[in-house]
Design a protein around this nucleic acid. Sequence first.
DNA 1: GTAGCATGGTAAG
DNA 2: TTACCCTGCTACG
Length: 273
Amino acid sequence: MPEGHTLHRLAGALADAFGGRVVRVTSPQGRFAAEAAALDGATFEGAEAWGKHLFCDLGADRYVHVHLGLYGKHDVHADEAGEVPPPVGQVRMRLVAGGDGRPAAYADLRGATACELVTGAGRAAIVARLGPDPLREDAEPARAWARIERSRTPIAALLMDQKVLAGVGNVYRAEVLFRHRLDPYRPGTSLRRRQYDAVWADLVDLMREGVRTGRIDTVRPEHTPEAMGREPRRDDHGGEVYVYRRTGQPCFVCGTAVRTAELVARNLFWCPR
DNA sequence: GTAGCATGGTAAG
DNA sequence: TTACCCTGCTACG
């Protein structure tokens, strides 16, 4: 389940498992059947993420564009010892590689919002709608700042807007605002450049760590369960966080009860103090 | 058993 | 603003 770090991690796993290999492409569930048939036998040239979007390069100006949405899953099974097992449940797209001297591998995509075949131009059009992604080397953070500094929209909404910043989801927005003591309802216009720069740099660090570990950890060393002598509390990502889904529980820094409210159709969590 | 919710986003009205 | 996409988990009865 995906914020940007999940997609970048996935791109890496797919590239490792399938890079340079001929892949069998199928759609057991059927909704990607025609495209899968056209791609079957292609060489998997690479995989790349931009924000929460994944692009698999299958050569000949063909890319599979994947967006996992709220509950999509893309499982990669590298180094399969025996037979590749039959698909379980609704598998939109299955990639299989094997018989080429390298260990067999397969990957199943389920429940995705988007799984479509696009050209390079189509891929560019999708990317053009997205803001800079803290996880990309070629990111231009000034593009996001240009929008934030002239918007009266609350900063918590701007951070979630993929046109402003790509890859940040509901967990990272709540956590990064907490770490910088920023009121989620402050309008973008009220932020100073220095504050934005610090938020961006922190997102780069936090999300890189997320790619490395596969979970979201945002708690500083002095507030870890070990340091504070409290019970470890792991969120759904398996990580340690300050406020996400901690409604009513005491803030690790000041003890104030964590609050929640709806913002842009998503639950926002923050410490009011 | 099943209602409700979730790390997301689009399209219709 | 609302409906919808279409999966998996948890809380509840």
